[in-house]
Design a protein around this nucleic acid. Sequence first.
DNA 1: ACTCAAACTTTACACTGTCAAGATTAAAAG
DNA 2: CTTTTAATCTTGACAGTGTAAAGTTTGAGT
Lengths: 206, 206
Amino acid sequence: MEQQRQTYHHKDLRNALIETGIQIVNTEGVNAFSLRKVAAACGVSHAAPYSHFQNKEELLEAMQLFITDRFSKQLESTVQKNNNVAEIMKDMGIAYVSFFVENPAYFQFLYSQSNIKIDLSLSIPDDQNYKPYIIYKNIVSKLLGQTHYSEEKQNDIIITIWAFIHGVTSLATMNNVNYDNDWREKVIDFMDVFQLSFLNNTGEKI
Amino acid sequence: MEQQRQTYHHKDLRNALIETGIQIVNTEGVNAFSLRKVAAACGVSHAAPYSHFQNKEELLEAMQLFITDRFSKQLESTVQKNNNVAEIMKDMGIAYVSFFVENPAYFQFLYSQSNIKIDLSLSIPDDQNYKPYIIYKNIVSKLLGQTHYSEEKQNDIIITIWAFIHGVTSLATMNNVNYDNDWREKVIDFMDVFQLSFLNNTGEKI
DNA sequence: ACTCAAACTTTACACTGTCAAGATTAAAAG
DNA sequence: CTTTTAATCTTGACAGTGTAAAGTTTGAGT
């Protein structure tokens, strides 16, 4: 597990710490992560990380950003694969749950001890907001744009579905929850109901 | 903060550790909790907890059980306050979110690093299952019992609503989620929709 | 070739969980 | 009422943790 190196300088320690750290979180769990362990795994002294991060928290943040980036790309890739907006929305729901089911440690790592900021109001510019949420929001907005719901009502619906997906993913990634079926189907079912009941409002704004 | 005592034996150390531990989690956060700190706060040496718990994990489990118990009682108290089942269900939804909004650290503590087992299938006897879920499930079952849904379909609906409440509570207790409205209203809205669309199935079982 | 700042190491300290050995004492047994 | 016993608590130790300070190495720019 422990790497050696011949040069005094590692040349890419910052990235190595991030990626090795994520690997530890993924295989041994969030609690097994430590600065000294990740330093050793990179073949570097225990205080070396302090050349690149002020403290443990900062490395964790960088790891979370890295994961968020991969997550965003995975969500975005569902947009390319299809051109039916309603279908994209379903694919994205599946992608959302799948990403965390395939890497269960990520969910707790990202959402429960994280510094990631998510703004569900309409006040903050998209590029300062949590990217996976924006990607999801933009797709649902496209669907809802065909209706005559007010902007607030649309935002309300978006948050409702997001909360559901988030809840399902949380349950799906918990060790000790026994559920016989596939959580992804649950998301699809929910979106079906949503699309049936919300997408034919062509009347007045409410 | 640190207590003193005159007798060599504490007489109630086990409970003291549990309740003081919960207080630390609640005020300083999950990560601030340590065996040595809670021992000191109880006025006892750092290894004293090992007379009552095999390790840190066991004390954490006891604390989680204690919280779960209080949570269960809070949910159950909504049943007494009302006799309209549909209203009880809403009250319980409010109680669910409120419990964790009032003690935000509890949510992460209970659900993300917990050993609590939740069985969403129909296979396990209620008394071996996660009590708050059973309390909630029994109320919704009472409502659904008036319909003609199959047992599986009923269980399906119950899980859907539970996942939503769980997701909302998760978002509501996250530090860095900005949401302008009251999450409890979101739960109520959801239950209204549910009661409208699911509670008038009096036809064949599906 | 020299300088210098960035990258890394070493040493040190306080804090953590846990174990083993010992001290105290409440309660059971005589 | 003494004696025994076992539960409870203390002390001391050890490895592991995050982090600060001081020292070392080395690549890059003058």
